[in-house]
Structures are given as structure tokens and as C-alpha cells.
Amino acid sequence: MSTDSMYRLLVTIAVILGSIIYGFFINSLARRITARVQNRMGPPLKQPFIDVIKLYSKRTFVTHGIMQTLGPILMLTGIISTLILIPYGKGYLTLYSSNGDLITILYIMTFGQLAMALAVGQAGNPYGTIGVARGLTRMFGYELPLILALISLIALNHSADVNVIIANQHGGIANWNAFRHPFVGITALLAMLGMMSYQPFDNASAPAEVASGPITEFGGKFMAIMMTTNAMFVVAKLALLVDLFFGGASNIFILALKIFLLYLYPLFVGLVFPRFAMEDTFLFFWKWPTLIGFIGLAIAIF
């Protein structure tokens, strides 16, 4: 193994670990912000770590079958595979993004979700299955505007290569895709609301309706891994959006800042809106964001 690939591997591992930590960090920050909005104190910043350690130190783990046991592992596999394809900066920080373009990233993202869904299925809890059905329906909804936005980007940059898209945005805020192509940006931001599964689109894991949805049957270690992967996934998704629409980042700290700022947006939207019904969620994405997306794509092509 050459030193170059060795460095790349080390950076990758660091990014993976860092994404876990950063994911937890912004998660607890969000919880604190939510608490402040509600005039509460909120949990300490280290709370997610405590939760994960606690879950990991549970004494019993119950499973309903092989898929429930394997599911979290596969989920972790899927998320890490997604993570390493997203560039987090320049040089080694592009990780392994030269092994797949935007389409690849978009598809490999679903790997983890499928694994999760399978695990939920094996658990045999109807609440979990309902949660998955809701989640998939929501995905079917928000993917349309999201795809429109991404296709617009590909059309504009003549490339599906994330690194190229980042490179095309250099030179100030005005050159960021979100601002240079406002329709595309708006579409992506609206689709992102669905992607982040915050309120008002948190019907998949709605605690009061379907227990906690997909994770109903998962406790202990399984839950711990799910929390970890969720944290990583949030970072991955946000990093991708930052790369695509907000000019990427020259170093990891700016990226972290951008991720955090971007994360605040669905959070605040969620604080304002109550949960949508499933049909409304689905139709919402297929109405306005899609319309805007089509306009954006039309502008991008012609």
C-alpha cells in the first residue's frame, strides 16, 4: 500500500469517526436550541454520547430473526459507503469520491435505507412496517424535486461529478449554485425538508401515532447503531447538499460550519410547523417544489 492510499485511508477513517461525533454534536445542539425555543434548558451537549453508550451497554438484545440482527450492520455499511463517496474538501478530503459520481451517491444512499427497512420487516411489528411505508412514501414524494434539482445541476455543469460541481462554484457566495440558480436552490431546499425527516415531515417515526415507527422494535445495541448511523447520515446528506449548492468547502471547519447552518433551517421550519398528514406530505412535494423544480430545470436546459 502506497503512502498516498494509506493517507487517504487514514483521512477516511478520521472523517467517518468525525462525522459520528459531529453528527451527535449538531444533534444535541439542535435539541438544546429546540429547548430554548420552548423556554427549557434542554439536555447537556454530551447527551447523545451518553445515550449511545448506555444503549450499547444494555445487557440484553432481543431479535426476531437474522435480518433484524444483520440490518443495522448493513445499514452501517450503506452509510459508510455513502460517506466515502462524498468529497469533504480538497486533496485527501475528497476521500474515494473518484469511484462514483452523483448518481452513484444517490443510489448507494438507498442501500442503508433498504437494510433498515428489511430489519424493521423482520422485527414483525406493524408499527415499524407502517413507519417504513410512510418513510418510503415520503421518499417517493421528495425524490421528485430533489432529482429535478440534481439533474438541473448536472445540466448546468455538464457533469455529474461532485468535485467538478464544487469547482464550478468557486469565487464567492454569488457563485454558489443555490444563489446563482435560485429556482434550483429553492427546490433543493424544499426537498431537503423531506430528506431530513424533521417536522412537519416526521410522519415515519411519529411517536404518538406509530410508536416510534421503524425503530419500534429496536433497543440496546441495535438502537445504538441506528443512532450512530443516523448521525453519520445527517452529516453525509448535509455535506452533499453543501457540496452541491453551497460552494463546497476549502477546509473541514468551514464545511462543518456550513453543515451546521444548513442544519438549522429544517430545524426551525420544524419548530414552526406541526406534522403533516401523510397524503399532504406526499402531495406537498409533488406540487410546489416540483413545479419550481421544473421551472429551474427548464431554465437550466434552455
Binding site: 450492520i73 459508510i80 459507503s81 452523483l102 452513484t104 461529478d161 447503531i225
Partner: peptide, 29 residues
Amino acid sequence: NSYGYWNAFYLGSAVVIIFIVSTIYYNLQ
């Protein structure tokens, strides 16, 4: 092609390796 790239074998191997690593991590306890 002119728009993008994709490396099937590397990606597949990466997934397999990550799977093995995750399994090990998973069963550490």
C-alpha cells in the same frame, strides 16, 4: 463517459470491506 464515472469493482469491494469491518465492530462487545 463525458458526464460521470463509476467504478463497480472498487465500490463493491469497498462495500464488502466496510461490511466486514462493521460486523467486527458490531460484535466487539
